[in-house]
């Protein structure tokens, strides 16, 4: 059994790659009038989804609350593009789940341990130990900021 798709296409007498059997409908719609001179230059407009989201199945968004990453230029209301597909590396900005809430911090790996480091002197670093209620949620790839 080659699979349903192949079988069904053959049943219709329409082999998967045959170009000559185009029943009823014209091959590519109906064309009328003069072709636009722009047709040859037709291309896609920039699509931010495609530029900023490398792994659509793994990408989620978050909104910044508070000022713990202020010195990194990340402020309340900014939108985070979070990619769960990426392996966290030293120096990444990441969303983690610590003690019942999501937190945004820099990751510092050293001596097999992990410290979550804020970008604001008024906040303490968080040492992750065996007993910490901690879950790595995703790596931040972009911060989107509204400027007007």
């Amino acid at each position: 059994m080659t699979g349903m798709t192949e079988f069904d296409v053959q049943e219709q007498g329409n082999a998967p790659f045959a170009e000559e059997q185009m029943p009823r409908m014209a091959q590519d719609g109906i064309h009328a009038g003069f072709p636009s001179p722009a047709t040859d230059y037709m291309t896609q407009a920039i699509d931010l989804n495609r530029e900023l989201v490398k792994h659509p199945a793994a990408t989620f968004y978050g909104r910044v609350v508070g000022d713990s990453m202020m010195d990194a230029g990340v402020e309340e209301g900014d939108i985070l593009v979070i990619d769960k597909a990426l392996d966290p590396q030293d120096g990444d900005m990441a969303v983690c789940f610590v003690d019942g809430e999501f937190t945004l911090k820099y990751l510092r790996f050293h001596d097999g341990g992990l410290v979550l480091v804020p970008a604001n002197d008024r906040y303490p670093s968080i040492e992750i130990s065996e007993g910490t209620d901690f879950k790595m949620w995703g790596v931040v790839t972009y911060v989107i900021k509204r400027v007007r």
Binding site: M1, G3, M4, F7, D8, V9, E11, Q12, N14, F17, A18, E19, M22, M25, Q27, D28
Partner: peptide, 21 residues
């Protein structure tokens, strides 16, 4: 396996497909 052959036996499917210019 039977669930696949089921389709083949009864020849019950409708396909609409096109190649694009």
């Amino acid at each position: 396996a039977c669930h696949e052959e089921e389709h083949e036996d009864r020849r019950q499917s409708i396909c609409t497909s096109r190649s694009f210019a």
